[in-house]
Each structure stands twice: as structure tokens, then as C-alpha cells.
Amino acid sequence: MYTSISDGIDGNANGGDEREQAFNARLDRAMKIEPSDWMPEAYRKTLVRQISQHAHSEIVGMLPEGNWITRAPSLHRKLILLAKVQDEAGHGLYLYSAGETLGTPRDEMVAALHSGKAKYSSIFNYPTLAWADVGAIGWLVDGAAIINQIPLTRCSYGPYARAMVRICKEESFHQRQGFEIMWTLAHGTTAQHAMAQDALDRWWWPSVMMFGPPDSESTHNEQSQRWRIKLFTNDELRRKFIDQTVPQSEKLGLRIPDPQLRWNERTQHYEIGPIDWEEFYRVIKGDGPCNKDRLQTRIDAWEDGAWVREAATEHARKRAERSDAA
């Protein structure tokens, strides 16, 4: 007759045809699937993978920028960067919460990250060598994230879609503060301009790769589109990113590091040179410049924080005991 929302996913795994039909009918009518609704196991599994991977990316994504908090060039920039990195922590937590509604405990998702089983966005395995990198990340990486995330506000899974609405609201500040850093440097001294150009040179291709392998090689596209947990293909999203970013680079007076980049009057899109997919797969497989460092930092944070988690649990237990006795 009723269920507790925290154990809403009970033995409904063996739904059979009727439930599967009802599920598909909901998808066809663009209705949301909610945690306690019946869903195919493959849908659940794919979503847990996608959402937790997304959550891990937000959490690991704090590290490259966090690296510059103590060295931001002014108090104003430091406050902005702190707020931005705090937002990314929030994004990770909204997403872990959404993932948990599918029945996978948060600790299990975190453990999968730490063991190397779960992936996160490969972009965060690149180092932030200069202050301009913080600008490039906000402008390019958050810019790419926005393009990825906006369609997901309409995805089929309710908790994921709602988390995305919150996240997207916060992202536009991230992109703008990054662009503003790039603008300031690009219009500063020769050395500052060169620093901005160098950051663009290093972050451009990894940002283009953020959308994942080309459609010709992407294995999940079709089923995920049917399930409405992926609304555009990798190449469609990538093209959108390039079309919107190239004119911005022109306004900045910076050069995109791609000699083959050109506007195609007929298609009304930019065309780019070949993407080095070897590099992409190498970084995904763990061989990027910072993979080991990023993962170790997360593991250390988790292990070094163990006593805090235990102390808080113990404190809560004692207080509960005392209030029972009173």
C-alpha cells in the first residue's frame, strides 16, 4: 500500500512485458521515470554508471582549479574561485544523491572511483600550469560542460533531470568568470597575453575531446537516446561547442591551435583538423599527465577524513543516547 522512499526500489526487477510496455509508453510520452517506478535493469545500470561518472567528474574536477586557490592573483579572484570550486563540490553531491535513488549507496560509488573501476572526465587529468589555466578551464571546460548538461535537464530520469536544472543554473557563472580571466589577460601585458594563448593552446584539444569518441565509434549512443538519457550525439554536441567557442576566441584576440580550422559556408559550421584520439584513449586508460596524482589525492582525502566521519557518527550516537535517557 505504501513504501518508504528510501527503499522504494524493491523486488520490481522482474517486471515482465507489461511493465516494460508501460515504461516504454512513459518514455514515448516524454514522461519522467521516478525512483520507485519500474525500470529495466539495463536502464538502471546504465544510469548509475552515467550519473556516478558525472558525479566523480565534478569531484575530481575540483582538483586542477583548487590547485590555484592559494595563488589567485587577487583577493577578489580568490573569492570567485573558492565559490566556483565549492559549486563543483555541490554538483558532485547533487549527482551522488540522484545516483543513490537508483539503489546504489554513495559509499559504493565512491569506492568504485577509488579502486579505479569507475571513470571520470579525462579533461581533469591535465595539469594547471599557470593562472591562465583557471581562465581556460572556466571558459572552455565549463563551457563544454554546459553544452553537455543543458539537454540533460530534459532527460527521462526525474532525479537526474532535476539535479541538472540546479547545476546548469550555477554553471553560467563558472563560464563567465573564466572568460573574464581570459579577457583580462588577453588585453593585458604581452606576457599576460602569451600566458592566455598558451593556456588555450593546451586546453583546446582536451576540451574538444570532452564530448567523447566520434559517433562512428561510440557504442552507447542508440540505446541511450532511446532511453532519453542522451539527447544528442557526441559529434552534435562537439560541433555546437566549436561553433560557439571559435567566435569567442576571436573576440579575445586569441588563436585556436588548429591550422585546419575553417568556416564552412555551405554547412554553416566550423570544420576542424583531425582529433588525436590516441591521446584521448591513452588518458582514459590512466596514462594522462595527472591520472595517478588525481586519484591518489581523492583516496588520501577519503582516508585522512576517516577519523572525522567516525567522530561525527560517535558524537551523534552519544547525543541520541543522552536525549533518550533524559
Binding site: Y2, T3, I5, E34, D37
Partner: peptide
């Protein structure tokens, strides 16, 4: 665990 819901 204290929030209870109707069965969909």
C-alpha cells in the same frame, strides 16, 4: 527512511 509514499 521516515518519508512514506504511495505505491506507484
Amino acid at each position: 527512511e521516515d518519508v512514506h509514499a504511495t505505491d506507484p
